[in-house]
Amino acid sequence: MKGSFNMIDCGVGGQGVVMMANIVGEACVRAGLRVISGELHGLSQRNGSVIAHQRIGETAISPLVPYGEADVILSLEPMEALRYLYFLKPGGLVITNTNMIHPPTETQMLAKGEKERYVRYDEVVERIRASGARIVEVDALELAREAGNPQTENVVMVGALAAVPEIPVGKEHMLEAVKDNVPKNALDVNVRAFELGYGSFKPGT
């Protein structure tokens, strides 16, 4: 393919953002596509904001998506989708988990009376929509629980991504990459998580 399909994977440290990016990368290789990813590790396990960049296609050679050029933001946490919205192209697609994770810094502001209330999910979604983005909402925590392990939220999200029509990677390649990246003893639960994510996809509005 000429040009590139650009993606941002994001979330909170510990949610499995890097694994999500690895699955997509592997799936691209399986589909015979060129792919390049850029991640930041190091602080990623310590509840901080985490982002990975992915570029799919022949002409992409940089590990960073230029501002305003991501086709998709795949986010494990709604506030992180909003935080990295500047990477999304005008009218691009945000696929976000609906489960909010309030950072301890925000909780402390409430406790110290510096802020009245937490940021609300509806506000975040409203802001994302106001940017002109389309949004797909996935209750990944609920679906991960349904699959049998709440820690499979990232695989649920990959499932939802695989259902996006404009994604250059097919469902089968994505599923194979999931199987390749998850612990062997947790294969079934992850396949279920993937399928539940895939089935939950509704075109963005």
Binding site: G13, G48, S49, L82, L85, P103, T105, M109, A130
Partner: peptide, 11 residues
């Protein structure tokens, strides 16, 4: 648009 967000530093 993102100015409502709290900071999320590692901790």
């Amino acid at each position: 648009l993102a100015d409502i967000l709290p900071i999320r530093p590692p901790g």
